[in-house]
Design a protein around this nucleic acid. Structure first.
Lengths: 345, 345
DNA sequence: TTTAGCACTCAAACTAATCAAGTGCTAAGA
DNA sequence: TCTTAGCACTTGATTAGTTTGAGTGCTAAA
């Protein structure tokens, strides 16, 4: 249990350290705090906080920095989101103000905006309805031997891929395959489709095509792409700013992670209605030890919920960041509702 | 004019420095060289080479490193490509050996292979016929209000984009627009189409659509994407290995460049049949001062010519790299000819 | 419970000394 | 004229030693 004064001090330690990056000592704190106590008193309190594992020293005679647990306590009990700077709100509104022709443009643009506002790396995920189902598959001949495969789900996701076909394959054969797929698979969830694709479908397709492998490759590829959630990432390069002592290896593994959709999904974790803060040591991924992740969902009514997130150094100004994330989720939801309204009207 | 011995020494300086990264002194050279001369003699020759600007010192009593001009002389007169290591050839052949269903897969895979072989960053550009022309444009309705725009050029490039349309727009209107575009624009080169798009087309389209802006946006977007050359990049992260003293700013501008197609096209420059080496100081881009770029074309007969390139530190083992690039261009051309042959048969 | 005072610790900054690798130059030898 | 041994000199790196300053814990008095 912390006393009021200890909370005040912990808050001051986190604030000061996130601002300056320098371990903070008793004298500095004595000057900053609203109450008038001597540095010796503060030293006693600091010792108590250290006892509880909330702060730590970098060496035996240094000032204190927050521990992982300290940050956790801070975000759970002490921080309150800063109101947005007026300028930031302008940025959001003008960047989201333009004319968009597809949801994905808005979502990807959002990642950029968020990273600009925070100067960290941002992730966005479009509003998603659970378990989207296959609603149609098409093969469109484009030229002599080019065909485009298009897959549409009932939640409106579209994946496509162009590929070449050998001229021995006739239009009728392709049509038969498309009919087969639409007959057998439409209405199933994507994981179900994937499963069927590994079981009975290849046999059936073999009735129409001599060597169905190529086609199955394509279909499987489009399908897996559609099945995995698609994240947009903004401000990847901002990670470079925090490469302490240029640890190239961990930077590399971070960037490798950004390109693996599955890994990101893993890191972002399950959506929750509250804005959630995950602090370095709480994340399984080792490369993230010095980072914190703020995630939040946004709600677009009957169109589902999406997610936004920012990834920055553990030592980040949480109050400001929470303010930004909170405001942005609202604005984004508004924008999307507008968008849907326009195209539904 | 350099004497035989000076050439031998310059070659040794470049070799040694690219291997070790340490400025090389007269004593080391005396030991390495096939001829038997004293270090004092070498010092005299080094002084002569420095006089001519081919080598330089990092400080007044250091060993020598090649200057930009030194590297230039080396690649122009002294280097000869290493034969490929057997293992490298295996890597190439097994990575290119798989089954591909589109040219772009082969080309993008090639960027990865090249970067793996060299541990630098690699670029590939698919074989391209000059001045491809618009050969078809389609709008495919996908769902309630989703439409996919597909643009095909006579060289087989396909660009597409999905977008939402307001329900007030009818199918007939869209068909009219498609007909208009195909009537008026098919057969023109893409730059010509872009030009028309800014001039008379908007007026004509206004006959069919009340607010054509949205549609023009989409069409223009797909068009510009089709008009610009598409590069594949492999091994972006390898750039991190050469971030001397972690100069974050120049790294950032490098990475920003990789994402701007135009900039890359600029850097790669005009294709030439010979393998070309461009050395840091010879490139306009400041962020590339410490890099060298090796570019080469590959020739796929009637299907045009493409380009491959690797970007690594100026201090790279040129002989090995030239060997790799030379061998790879051959293998890639072979693979592509096979590919075309299969789909043409 | 608070605080002044004090001895103590440690990283960082600075200084000085030494080392190793290299250079240019001179003068002698082939 | 070219080569080479020898030598004085330069320079960055490394190491050890010093100083400084910010900070701590502890004690004893208010």
């Amino acid at each position: 249990m912390l006393s009021e004064r200890q909370m005040m001090i912990l808050r001051a330690v986190v604030r000061d350290f996130t601002n300056t990056g320098v371990p903070v000592g008793s004298k500095t704190l004595a000057k900053q705090l609203p109450i008038h106590v001597s540095s010796a008193t503060i030293r006693n309190e600091l010792a108590a906080l250290e006892e509880q594992g909330l702060i730590e020293k970098t060496h035996s005679s240094s000032g204190r920095i927050p521990s992982g647990e300290g940050y956790r306590y801070y975000v759970d009990h002490l921080v309150k989101p800063d109101p947005l700077r007026p300028n930031d709100m302008d940025v959001i509104q003008s960047s989201l103000g333009g004319d968009f022709h597809k949801i994905d443009e808005i979502i990807s643009q959002s990642a950029t905006i968020l990273s600009n506002l925070t100067s960290y790396t941002a992730f966005t995920l479009k509003p998603e309805l659970k378990d989207s189902r296959l609603s149609g598959f098409r093969l469109i001949p484009l030229g002599k031997r080019q065909v485009m495969a298009i897959l549409v789900t009932d939640s409106g996701d579209v994946e496509n891929q162009t590929f070449d076909v050998n001229e021995k394959v006739t239009g009728e054969q392709l049509e038969a395959v498309v009919r087969l797929i639409n007959d057998q698979l439409v209405g199933l969830t994507l994981p179900e489709v994937l499963k069927k694709l590994q079981q009975d479908i290849p046999l059936k397709i073999a009735n129409y095509l001599q060597s169905p492998e190529g086609f199955l490759d394509i279909f499987g590829d489009v399908l897996t792409r559609a099945a995995q959630e698609r994240f947009y990432v903004g401000g990847r390069l901002n990670l470079l700013n925090f490469s302490q002592d240029s640890d190239v290896d961990s930077l590399k593994s971070l960037y490798a992670m950004l390109d693996k959709t599955d890994d990101i999904a893993d890191v972002l974790g399950q959506p929750s209605d509250k804005i959630s803060v995950r602090i370095g040591n709480e994340m399984t991924n080792d490369a993230l030890r010095n980072f914190s992740l703020i995630t939040a969902t946004y709600d677009v009514d009957q169109h589902g919920k999406g997610m936004i997130a920012i990834l920055g150094p553990t030592r980040m100004p949480y109050s400001r960041m929470l303010g930004i994330v909170g405001a942005f989720r609202e604005e984004l939801a508004k924008k999307l509702l507008d968008y849907y309204r326009f195209y539904d009207e």
